[in-house]
Design a binder for these strands. Structure first.
Lengths: 345, 345
DNA sequence: CTTAGCACTCGAATGCTTGGAGTGCTAAAA
DNA sequence: TTTTAGCACTCCAAGCATTCGAGTGCTAAG
């Protein structure tokens, strides 16, 4: 059914999609004819549109309505017809200014960038931070926190800080803790957390042999701390933008499904899954996304890097009828920006 | 206009509110007559309802419709007519089980309790944690985090951990840091953060006199760290429950306003403001809440204590037509539970 | 291959009718 | 004096017919 298009067909498709993105209404042949400077009459356009429909790029809600792009239509549009505009100056400036804010902590910064991105795009913005897997440790320390508790604090490349409070019955002296810290840092700095996990297991055998009870305990505690804890953090900003989209407001069921999805970390992670693999932009149109229950949303997302590894991904979630030509460079730019910000932290 | 009610009037009002809470539809005289076991005919009920309307407790959407409780009607209901039921066993059990989960960190626990509460109530649940103002410090430590950065970590009563990453050009040796830590802990443990702030300012003068450059620097860094940072954290769970309420779904504008409000920390803090003062339950009905733009929501909230001071508040946000007799004990119980959980951390 | 012309389709908007739920009032009953 | 049966009245919601117009597909001429 779906084939390639000649120049004319492509132009018509492009205009249909453009117009539909703008108006959210079915587009008629008259409109397209005008948009193309009346080089072709509505009747001709109708013929072309009928062809496009046959090829699966357009659809008719009912006989006497205009045409609406299908998922395939949007896909073709994004792949071949999109005007790859550069990001407008003022938007670049705003993003850069935000990224330059020095005082904020890493996760506060991400949240604010995400909010700004959602404002600029009028879509909901989602960020997944995979704190652990990939980022090398800058320091790992243990410190006392009250009578029978110790706190394990890890600082990652990029300024991410993670901590775990652990119950510990037997008390450690200040000296003990200092020794442990020296030992841990020697062991850990430069490793990613998953590497460290492996290293600790390895080391535990050695230490057992050496009969150093204190170090054994330190390793045990660290291993325990590393086992717990969620490996990813998720931020959602600009949920209310979903309500700006007529297609969602008309159908409360869709709205509910989307809002529920935003409340499930795992769903969001799955939505942005592909983007986590690299720094290139990923566009899922409609049912293309991996989540079963959400065939009416598109996701435009990109991973952002920190050194060698992908540190997380940032994306926009909205209706299939999204302004891709605007949104794609926005996300792309923001992802790069995030990466470079964390590089210098 | 608004006066006190005789027994009969009160009973009718109670039934109208009960029925309206259940159905979200205007309530007619027939319905009430039946509910009261036909001790009074519909005609009599009509007379009573007309009185209640005159007094401002009921209103008619239009001439030939039933009655709907006004804000004042709900207020009277909550103040005088509510059957103060105890919380049902299974709900108590669920909450307790959740509170007993040992492994989770303080903020993860709050988030999960909040989510559970939103599920049990079918409303959106909001928690405000005022981390700083009131809770005494258990420990305050500085540690190195990379080449030119130090991390200041504070552990509060209740298991709350807070950290700040600070740029620091001149490098500190391990010895320096140890001295600083001893000094800081001596200074800080047992104080609340606001007390500590004052203490540091005091101390800075002294140290200046003593010409101890290292301690000076430590104090400077600490002061800087304490000055930044938001004093409160806010969690919202169960937003999607808002969409279960017909009164909100019918009116997208209201929906938008509510969702936008959920995205503004300051708005939420204002909504729960009164509850932060004490451990008693606060009910704001409709326009009673302090936020201008949200006259259609009710807030049922309670502060939770940690030792002497209020550590935060937890509340439910929903339509004026909320099931107060269910929701009030729910919130009350959860707030107490939270307090006692953090007590033992 | 393009396009003017035309018959046709279908949804959205409009107006009309009807049914029913609910009211207020009055007058009789308790 | 209070209650209630009876009744006229109001108004919304739902159903139905009609109209309007945007848009189509097809055909035949350019």
């Amino acid at each position: 059914m779906i084939g390639s298009l000649d120049e004319r067909g492509a132009q018509v498709l492009r205009h249909v999609v453009d117009d539909y993105i703008e108006t959210a209404e079915p587009v008629g042949s008259r409109t397209i004819s005008k948009k193309m400077g009346q080089t072709l009459s509505p009747a001709t356009i109708r013929n072309i549109m009928a062809d496009l429909e046959e090829m699966g790029y357009l659809a008719q809600p009912h006989t006497s309505a205009g045409r609406v792009p299908t998922g395939a239509g949007f896909r073709y549009y994004v792949d071949y017809l999109l005007a790859r505009r550069r990001l407008a100056r003022p938007e670049r400036d705003q993003l850069q200014r935000m990224a330059g804010e020095a005082g904020t902590s890493a996760d506060e910064l991400v949240r604010q960038m995400s909010r700004l991105l959602s404002n600029l795009s009028h879509q909901a913005c989602v960020v997944v931070v995979s704190r652990f897997s990939n980022q090398p440790l800058r320091s790992l320390s243990m410190l006392r926190a009250g009578v029978d508790k110790v706190l394990l604090v890890s600082v990652m490349q990029g300024g991410w800080v993670e901590h775990r409070l652990i119950e510990e019955e037997t008390s450690l002296t200040g000296d003990d803790i200092e020794r442990i810290n020296n030992y841990l840092n020697e062991l850990a700095v430069g490793l990613t957390l998953s590497q460290l996990r492996a290293r600790i297991l390895q080391e535990m055998k050695k230490e057992k042999a050496r009969y150093d009870r204190l170090m054994q305990r330190a390793l045990l505690l660290s291993a325990r701390a590393l086992d717990e804890g969620s490996p990813t953090e998720v931020y959602v900003e600009g949920r209310a933008n979903i309500l700006e989209q007529p297609e969602f407001v008309e159908d409360v069921q869709k709205l509910k499904r989307i809002l529920r999805a935003f409340e499930e970390k795992s769903v969001i992670v799955r939505l942005l899954d592909k983007a986590l693999e690299g720094e290139t932009i990923q566009v899922s149109i409609g049912a293309e996304n991996p989540v079963e229950g959400l065939p009416d949303i598109s996701v435009v997302a990109s991973g952002y890097r920190l050194g060698e590894a992908t540190a997380g991904s940032i994306g926009l979630i909205g209706p299939v009828r999204m302004d891709y030509s605007h949104v794609i460079p926005l996300v792309q730019y923001t992802a790069r920006l995030l990466g470079s910000v964390f590089e210098h932290r």
